[in-house]
Nucleic acid binder design. Structure first.
Lengths: 276, 276
DNA sequence: TAAAATTTGTACGTATGTATC
DNA sequence: CGATACATACGTACAAATTTT
């Protein structure tokens, strides 16, 4: 009898996550989304550990990670607690729940973004509540203010980070506006991967006010509810980051042109297909 | 001095995952995708533990989970090994890497699917390799054969499972055809959530051959490369599951009509917008 | 018939991290 | 906040089973 050959399939290594890392990640999610701002205080250790369903030592371990990353500060005493000191999250705290993807091919993330984000924005326009619009405006405001501060000066590290935060926060706000938890989860995964690109790319922009403009244009488009406007504004916003990334990386995104071309072709073909 | 109020934001409990659970999940992924078929043997424990980057005891723990779930069978000896015994994965093994989402609102998943899947299919049409098409054909074949077996009979439990497996496998094949790991990961998340719906819904179909037809139509559309055809076929495929689910659940999906209406409106507006 | 090779099965010591008090 | 107890995963080594040579 011939020996049954084992499968030629190869598995990718698993990435293990410790509870305290998951907890730290969850807290950074809230900070990234702008749910807690710089200077504000998080709930007490007691309260947090209950909310997150872990023991207090585990939560303390998580906080230690955040302190070490410079994201929060812990003060003792009766009016003390865990205070947010920075809204930019170091990449070390971003890589946990999404293994499997080689960091090199940022192409996949960019392409996926171009594929999904316009439709997320369209859906957001349908379901956004006043609170959602307020979050979006908040993000745009942050971007505008940061931009004004560096009007005629070179952008500083801190300024670049703020611009990144504003963009990320805007994206999260849009995703949440869909009122669809599945969509939010998927966008979260993509945004984490994009953050690194963002900080690297924003320094390459000849004029950071462009970034602010794409944000406010997107906001106006979503408020208008017109799909064509939304698509155009979203495409412009994505395109800006892509260009900046290409300059920073010194090479073109492999698939950028193909996807854009197909999108255009599909648009014109859609209406003419039946006539042939 | 007034006390700084802690944030009113509430955190969701974290869900801890053990390494053996992650490993078990990863193996089921390969089975679900059809990389290993029933009766075939997986690599040896030694090889698997190296590939997956875990110790052999941990891998054995994972295998134990799979054996208990009836997915694999372990035989000792020189020609022994880990053999696949079933291609339908119990839901217990499906829920690990995706916490946070209440199982009830299947609406979110369906809506997200309708939002993303057509564009994934379009991209697949651009990048699919012969191997990808072979995987798709494989899935269609399974569906066709199962369908033929229950030509004039009522569908059995086993038959319903096979139809589910075929649909899932087709979807994974399409996602992989995009050659975009980000897209694959996102689709994986969605498909896991959909599986439960699939098995429940497929029994409600008055004629299961409809399901097979939507698959082969989608395959033909992707082979043709015509975006309009792809959109139509994908919409039909999604629509069938949605209808079946509505019958099974006894209520309409909340947002189904809204999303479809907006998609149509956007399609017609897109081409006429610039002419005004 | 017997020995060799391959693969699963079992066990122990260590280290790390989490939970309880 | 600290200390102790417990659970879990790892690495290694060896034993048992079965087929091939």
């Amino acid at each position: 009898m011939t020996r049954i050959q084992p499968t030629r399939f190869v598995f990718q290594p698993v990435q293990l996550v410790r509870p305290c890392e998951v907890v730290a990640y969850r807290i950074t999610e809230a900070i990234r989304a702008g749910d807690v701002k710089v200077g504000e205080r998080l709930p007490s250790e007691q309260s947090l550990s209950v909310q997150l369903g872990v023991s207090r030592p585990t939560l303390r371990e998580a906080v230690k990670l955040l302190v070490h990353a410079g994201v929060v500060q812990v003060l003792p005493g009766s009016s003390g607690g865990i205070f947010v000191t920075s809204e930019s999250i170091p990449p070390e705290l971003c890589g946990f729940p999404l293994p499997d993807l080689p960091l090199e091919d940022i192409d996949s993330v960019m392409e996926a973004r171009r594929l999904f984000e316009p439709h997320v924005a369209r859906l957001a326009a349908i379901y956004a509540t006043p609170a959602d619009f307020e979050r979006m405006r908040d993000a745009v405001r942050l971007s505008t203010e940061t931009c004004a501060k560096f009007k005629n000066k070179k952008i500083s590290d801190d300024g670049a980070q703020r611009m990144t935060i504003a963009s990320t926060r805007f994206n999260i706000a849009v995703a949440r506006a869909t009122q669809n938890s599945m969509v939010v989860q998927m966008m979260e995964v993509m945004l984490r991967r994009m953050e690194v690109v963002r900080t690297l790319a924003v320094r390459q922009l000849p004029d950071i006010s462009q970034s602010t403009k794409t944000l406010s244009d997107s906001l106006r488009a979503i408020e208008s509810g017109d799909p064509a406007q939304i698509d155009a504004a979203t495409a412009a916003r994505i395109g800006l980051l892509e260009s900046a990334w290409e300059m920073a990386a010194g090479k073109r995104l492999r698939r950028r042109s193909i996807l854009q071309a197909s999108a255009v072709a599909a648009g014109s073909k859609k209406t003419s297909a039946k006539t042939t």
